[in-house]
Write a protein that binds this DNA or RNA. Structure first.
Lengths: 197, 197
DNA sequence: GTCTATAGTTGGATAGAC
DNA sequence: GTCTATCCAACTATAGAC
C-alpha cells in the first residue's frame, strides 16, 4: 500500500470515505476517520486533496457512478405495459433498498450540498443524473412494451425520481417494506395510464 | 429578558434553535450559535436542557407543530373530485414552499435522526404525523367532493407524503417550480382516478 | 437563576523530520 | 512520499463566583 501514485491514492481514499460515510453517516466521515479507514496517516489525505470539500465532491461522484452502473431491464416474454413498467421500477427500487447506508448517505449529501456552496454541484449533478437515468429507463420500458408515452418523459421522469426518493425516505424511517411496495405499485399504475399504443 | 421561568426560557431557546437551524442548517445550530441567537450565555442552554439532543428533539416537535397548524381546505362552489384534491394538495405544497429553510431543516433532522439513536424518535414521529395529516386531508377532500376512495387511505396517504417529499427535495435542489407544479398535478390526476361516487 | 471561566474533546489543516 | 508532532479553532459540557 506504500508509495502509490496519487491517482490511485485518491481513488483509495474516496472509497474509504464512501465506506465510512455510508456506514456511520456523513458527520462521522471526518478526515481523521477516513484516513484511519484507509490505513494511512492524517497528512496523506491533505496531501491528496485540497480540502475536505474536494474529497466530499469526489464521494458524490463515486456514489452516483456506483448507482448508475446498470439498470438492466429484465426481458419479459409477453410484454404488456404494466408488467414492463413494474419490472423496471422494481429493479431500481431493489438497488436502492439493497444498500441502506448508501441511500441514506445520498440524502445526507444532498442536504449538505444545499447548505454548503462548495458542495452545491453535488446536489445538482446527482439530481440531473437521476432524472436522465429515469428518462432513459422510461424510454426503454416503453420500447419494450411497444407503447408510447402520452406526456413528455422529462415530466414523468421527475415524478418517478421524486416518488422513488420519497418512498425510500419513508422506508428508511419506518422500515415498512410492504407499504413501500404498495406505494411503488401505485406509481406503476399511474405511469401505465400515461401510455398508448 | 432576564429571570424567565424555565418553561418560557426553554420555549425561547427552542425558537432560537429553530431559527438558526432553518437559516443556516442543522450543522450550524451549535449550542453556542443558539445561545447567541437567543441572546443568552452559553451556560443557560445547558441549564435548561439535559444536552444538545434534548434540545434537538424539541426542535423536531416545534417544526411539526408549526406545520400541522392548519390545512384549511378552501371552500369550492362546484366541487368535482379533481378540483378539490388539487386544491388540497396545492395548499400543502404552498405551505412547504413558503419556508424553504424549514423544509430543508426537516430533511436534515430526518437524516440526523436516522444516524443518531437519541434522535430516532424525531424521524418516526415526523413521519407518523405527516401520514396522519395526509390521511385526514384525503378524507376531508373526499367528503367535500362527495366521493369515496377505492383504496385504503393509509396507502394513499403514504404515496402522497412520499411524492410530496420527493417533489420538495428536487425543488430544493434545482428550484424548478413549474416542474414541481407539473409533478404535483400528476399526483392529483392519479389520486382522482382512485375515487368513485 | 445567571454569568464567567474553563475543562476536555475533536475537528481541519500544516510544518518539518525522515 | 510519508509520518510525527503540533497548531488553532470550535465544539459540548461543567464548576464555581455572583
Amino acid at each position: 500500500m506504500d508509495r502509490l501514485p496519487m491517482v490511485e491514492r485518491r481513488a483509495q481514499l474516496i472509497q474509504a470515505a464512501l465506506a465510512v460515510a455510508s456506514r456511520d453517516g456523513i458527520e462521522a466521515a471526518t478526515v481523521r476517520a477516513i484516513a484511519a479507514e484507509a490505513g494511512v496517516s492524517l497528512g496523506v489525505v491533505h496531501y491528496c486533496f485540497e480540502d475536505k470539500n474536494e474529497l466530499l465532491r469526489e464521494v458524490g461522484e463515486a456514489i452516483a457512478v456506483q448507482r448508475v452502473d446498470r439498470v438492466d431491464l429484465p426481458l419479459i416474454p409477453d410484454p404488456d405495459a404494466r408488467t414492463v413498467i413494474g419490472a423496471a421500477l422494481a429493479t431500481v427500487w431493489e438497488a436502492m433498498r439493497e444498500r441502506r447506508g448508501a441511500q441514506l448517505l445520498s440524502f445526507e449529501l444532498t442536504t449538505a450540498a444545499l447548505r454548503n456552496p462548495e458542495l452545491r454541484g453535488v446536489a445538482t449533478a446527482q439530481l440531473e443524473r437521476n432524472l436522465l437515468a429515469a428518462r432513459e429507463l422510461l424510454d426503454e420500458a416503453a420500447a419494450a412494451a411497444v407503447v408510447r408515452w402520452t406526456v413528455p418523459t422529462t415530466l414523468l421522469a421527475r415524478l418517478t425520481v421524486a416518488t422513488l426518493d420519497g418512498i425510500a425516505l419513508a422506508w428508511l424511517v419506518d422500515n415498512d417494506t410492504p407499504a413501500a411496495d404498495q406505494a411503488l405499485s401505485a406509481l406503476t399504475d399511474h405511469l401505465t395510464t400515461q401510455t398508448k399504443r
